[in-house]
Amino acid sequence: MTLIRARWPLAAGLVAVATFAFAHGDVAPQAVNTDTLPDVGEEWLTENPYRAMEPEVFEEAIRVGASGYNQNCARCHGLEVISGGLAPDLRFLEAEEYGDEWYAERFQHGMTQNGITKMPAFGEILGQKAAWAIRSYIETRPDDRQVAEAAPKLTEMRDKLAALAEDPSGADVEAVKAELMELNAGFETLSGAPVADSAAAHAARVIDGSPEKFHEAAELISVSLSAAQ
């Protein structure tokens, strides 16, 4: 059974380290607010329930999952889920039941090796809704090579958003959103998920015409560019 999709020559190395992660030490899991997500029951599922729900529910799961991932997982698995090579690169977990089963088991029970906690058990602390929200975020990460290749366009877009944050007068918000979504459409996932949810898509959802949101959108793209370098 192949759980991690081998698409690059590097993938073999990623599979080899898929059972190793940084020790978490004394870092305590941080609670994730999942109030905006529908309940999925108490019994643990073996497949991501949000994947098959309405697009707006899945988008909200990704948003919640991004927060949960950054609070609890990024320290070991990397910003934008881009591993530094010691922790598993979770972007390669297939976005289907096989990958979900592996993920759910590890999320619930963690991992201990030679008496050392490599990954804490998050199941009872964070719960199932948070687990599948984080999974939704992970499986929709874009291919960082494609993000790097699109860096000139993303940088241009970031600078445009930063300029609009300074002076949003006359901004065509819908046109800016469309431009961001066009950029997002050029990215693929590494999990096999049909649609990537890149920083460009996130930025498109954020902007509302206000200077604060244009600034937030520009920062989202800056972080993505840094992670893809």
Rank of each mutant, 00 (worst) to 15 (best):
F20M: 11
A21N: 14
A21M: 12
A21Y: 06
F22I: 09
F22W: 07
F22P: 11
F22Q: 12
F22H: 11
F22V: 14
A23Q: 10
A23Y: 08
A23M: 13
A23D: 12
H24W: 14
G25C: 08
D26Y: 06
D26C: 02
V27F: 14
V27K: 07
A28F: 11
A28H: 10
A28C: 05
A28Y: 06
P29F: 01
P29E: 10
Q30M: 03
Q30I: 00
Q30D: 06
Q30S: 03
A31D: 09
A31S: 14
A31G: 09
V32M: 13
V32Y: 12
V32C: 09
V32D: 05
N33I: 13
N33W: 09
N33H: 10
N33M: 03
T34Y: 05
T34R: 07
T34M: 12
T34W: 09
D35F: 05
D35H: 08
D35N: 07
D35Y: 04
T36G: 02
T36E: 14
T36K: 06
L37N: 00
L37Y: 07
L37D: 07
P38R: 10
P38S: 07
P38W: 09
P38A: 00
P38G: 07
D39C: 13
D39V: 09
D39Y: 02
D39W: 11
D39L: 04
V40W: 12
V40I: 15
V40D: 06
V40R: 03
G41P: 08
E42H: 07
E42Y: 10
E42F: 12
E42D: 14
E43C: 07
E43D: 14
E43Y: 04
E43T: 15
W44P: 05
W44C: 01
W44L: 10
W44Y: 15
W44N: 11
L45Q: 01
L45A: 01
T46H: 03
T46E: 06
T46D: 05
T46I: 12
E47T: 08
E47V: 14
E47R: 06
N48D: 07
P49K: 07
P49V: 02
P49Y: 02
P49C: 04
P49N: 02
